[in-house]
């Protein structure tokens, strides 16, 4: 599923004193199968942007094309779009409502009108891929731990078998181990199912080692759109936008400045260790 944003702007509360231009002339191409990090500090417009990707918000001006079809076409089917683009909101565990884990995960597939058997197969597969044990299927989601709840909520979107998966801050509020586990899980899902994944975060650290393309948003505009290596070389610009680059990368940039011949596409301790031992 390719997504093209063509000069998209979004204005909240137009014509009132609360008017706010959240997206300002965004043009973007998201081809099939990419792993993208969408970075920006709070209020940079990234949440507004991702809500355009599955039609929850419509552009105030500009157009969006899904597989070549305009969102404003008369025969555009919103329901199909919701199936194709799965959106996991921040703190998704707050949307759980059913009496059991399995029922909650089935909510999406049932809404899409999937056949009972297909829906169940999809739900089981989704729960398995996020690492929820079968013994938890009939447990109330409210009785799970924070990390488990989040996995169930992600499974709820995965069960709809989206071709594009957008996750808003999937690791927010978890401890270091929990953060790493959830991000590894997402990377695995992407590898196994070969889908497009967009990881939204205000932390470069979290996305650095996973994604192949980073889109940096600032004040409703796209400030940078490039490979991680290229983006991180603009250390000072990023800092002016309230963003950080991964610690290790920053260290290497500094070492390079002092004349050491080291690579700059280094984001993790493992990579750094390899590079320095050479």
């Amino acid at each position: 599923m390719s997504i093209i944003l063509d000069h998209v702007s979004h204005i909240y509360n137009p014509g009132t004193t609360f008017e706010k231009r959240a997206l300002d002339d965004i043009s973007l191409v998201i081809p099939d199968g990419e792993f993208i990090g969408l970075i920006g500090h709070t209020g940079s417009g990234k949440s507004t942007l991702i809500q355009h990707l599955n039609g929850l918000l419509k552009p105030s001006s500009g157009n969006i094309f899904f597989n070549g079809q305009s969102i404003f076409d008369n025969d555009f089917k919103m329901k199909d779009l919701r199936r194709e683009v799965g959106l996991v909101f921040q703190y998704p565990e707050y949307q759980l409502f059913e009496v059991s884990v399995i029922k909650d995960v089935l909510f999406g597939p049932n809404n899409l009108g999937m056949k009972t058997l297909d829906a169940e197969v999809a739900a089981y597969a989704a729960l398995k891929s996020v690492g929820i044990d079968e013994s938890l299927l009939d447990v109330s989601p409210l009785d799970l731990s924070g990390g488990q709840k989040r996995r169930v909520a992600i499974a709820g979107v995965l069960a709809m078998k989206p071709k594009v998966l957008v996750l808003d801050e999937p690791a927010a509020g978890l401890d270091p181990l929990g953060r790493r586990e959830i991000l590894d899980t997402i990377a695995n899902i992407r590898k196994e199912q070969n889908i497009t994944v967009i990881l939204v975060s205000h932390s470069m650290e979290d996305v650095a080692q996973y994604v192949e393309r980073i889109i940096v948003m600032n004040k409703g505009k796209i400030a940078m759109d490039d490979t991680p290596q290229e983006v991180y070389s603009h250390d000072e610009e990023l800092q002016a936008m309230g963003l950080d680059i991964p610690e290790i990368t920053r260290l290497f940039l500094r070492l390079k400045k002092e004349g050491y011949r080291l690579p700059t596409d280094v984001f993790t301790v493992d990579q750094a260790y390899e590079a320095m031992m050479k």
């Binding site: 919701r82 707050y94 909510f107 809404n111 979107v157």
Partner: peptide
Amino acid sequence: EETDRIMKAQQARGAD
């Protein structure tokens, strides 16, 4: 605001 957010999250899961 929270209601708005929950509504959107459920809509994203196909709720109508």
